[in-house]
Write a protein that binds this DNA or RNA. Structure first.
Lengths: 202, 202, 202, 202
DNA sequence: AATGAATGAGAGTTCATTCAT
DNA sequence: CATGAATGAACTCTCATTCAT
């Protein structure tokens, strides 16, 4: 990133304004003005305002999805009966890696989470969560234990976990704290689900 | 609500359009047209578009806050040592009441949760959660056990719980399912926190 | 038309500018400026620039089509063998009526003929001519004589006649001259076709 | 024409785009992009977009004018009294030559006829017809017979004939059909004018 | 209480042309 | 000869709000 380069200036101030005002509410004119560039110059680099947003976010969105796919893969490689225990362990094991990725792309993640209304990413986190849901529920169906919890609840817990993730990205910058929080929550989920299932099994 | 009454017509169609398009993206012109009312008439009843939104949402927003304050109050009336167990029980005990309130004001809750960008409620749920947090953490500080969990994690869990609430309001209409899900999640939280604290205490 | 009325002013200056610069090249901003009206006011009356054009032209376009349909009807009510003679006579008989209609809607016809690129009327005269063609050629097929001329030539003559019509509308204002020219051309077509057919029949 | 030559590439793709979108609606940017050439290079060869159009059309426009002048010349070399008959014959005699020229320059003729709005050729065919008119009417004035037709009508017929020519160029590709149609129409004109003059002379 | 025409700044986007390299 | 980033005015259209009636 180089302040003397037009494209970089557009990217820098585009990110700035999208973060400050959201995609829809950030006027392109203000962005290019701040970047010290003309509207014509802008359209030399991007087909439209939306493409600028994607230039800022696509890589990050795909990157996170790739990591989560890989994590979901790890979580599915266990015999059904030990699923519940091991799945969480497998996930927890990769939390640092996830956190590192999120921190490296903090601004971009914020764009996707909180500033993307009017773009293809406006439901990105919902979508992520549903994909994850699908990945896991296939194998969860084969597990005996999990049936004691309503599938609705599991889906709900998932969506809650993703919301927490979003909150952390937006508000927390300390790597260790993020890891600790995400791990503790995962442990609580794990422990809580086990406790509830035992209870209901009685 | 009376379809022949100007004010009521504005409220009805305002709600309709805000739900369908969000506050910002619903043009006032479309609302008053659908209501069969003139813009002039509108401004006889409301100072501006935003006030219409608040006329639709203020009562519900305050009502939910009141209930949650009352619940938080219940949760604080326990000696520190039994906090963790009892707090959750106290909360779970009042879930049906909360659910009933949410269902009675479903549309308004949706407005607040999903259509309020550009209004004072755009962070309402965050705010609710922070207030709740404050209410509880005062007494939580006095609890010995809870210190084994990082306060950040507890805040995070709270915020996750509120997100789940928001999701349920938006997507679930069956009273019993809502109660069951909210209860199960609360139990999982409770069981999970206990398990984690015991584990860490060892 | 009343110069003090906003809608009328838009219509008046819209017509002016479309005639002077064509639909596509007349900037809406210039039209409303000339009309002493704001762009906002304009969009209170018309959904877009194109609709203004249609407000100026639809009636005239439909009116001319109706007259020509009616004329085509007259032309088809003859036994095949006398077609060629009588069809032209039937048409010639109604020329004054057509001319009167054109002169009453001269500006609008000019808009349709010469200023309509980018609107649904950009091929209006071609379309008219093709419709007319279809109307006539159905019955022409049953005529023995006409077969001596290539159908391509007849279509071509038609299209030429319509072009002449367009030219007259644009350039001639004298009712009697228009009638005379249109009649003479029709007579020439009639006489010429007969002569050619006789010649080829030999 | 050589696809490896910058100038030729501009000419090729300029023709393409002007034919597809008309002069005004074909963005120069698209032309040079398609040609794999830079805008800067373009302005090395042409002063502006309009000059590119003329580079494509001037020769053809002048060529057709020359032929028609030559034809008009032929048509004027008859003693006044036999004008009407012989003029048409003289013209008809040269139709194949005209058709061959048109077919050799079909694309360019199309540019002039249908894609030239915004250039000096936007009224080329009108102009051609008026010039032709002048050429002929000088001598026509000396003819006794022709006076029985209104000069307006003759001008109109001319303009109609040119429109038919334009239509043929745009829509017909078969040499023999073109010749046949143009000849038949000329004959019809000839026969029709004679018949009308005899009729009026009575 | 109600009308609804009018406001006018501001939105995203286009495009022929220039000019330093 | 060629580059291609940059220009910037111009384009159509939107919308919350006002105000004379």
């Amino acid at each position: 990133m180089n302040e003397n380069n037009t494209l970089d200036r557009i990217l820098i101030y585009g990110k700035d304004f999208f973060l400050k005002y959201t995609f829809k509410s950030a006027p392109l004119r203000k962005i290019v003005e701040a970047a010290g560039v003309t509207t014509g110059a802008f359209y030399g680099y991007f087909a439209n305002k939306e493409e600028l947003f994607y230039a800022l976010t696509d890589d990050t969105a795909n990157g996170l999805m790739a990591i989560l796919n890989s994590v979901a893969n790890d979580m599915n490689n266990f015999p059904p009966n030990e699923k519940i225990f091991k799945m969480c362990d497998a996930y927890i094991h990769r939390i640092p890696e996830i956190v590192d990725y999120l921190l490296e792309h903090r601004d971009e993640m914020k764009l996707i989470i909180a500033c993307s209304q009017g773009t293809k990413y406006e439901n990105y986190f919902n979508m992520l969560q549903e994909r994850n849901q699908d990945n896991i529920s296939q194998s969860a169906e084969k597990s005996e234990q999990i049936h004691l919890l309503s599938p609705d609840t599991i889906e709900l817990l998932m969506s809650g976990y993703f919301s927490m993730l979003a909150k952390l990205i937006t508000e927390e910058t300390d790597r260790e704290k993020m890891i600790r929080s995400m791990t503790e929550v995962a442990r609580i989920y794990q422990g809580g689900m086990l406790a509830l299932m035992q209870e209901e099994a009685e």
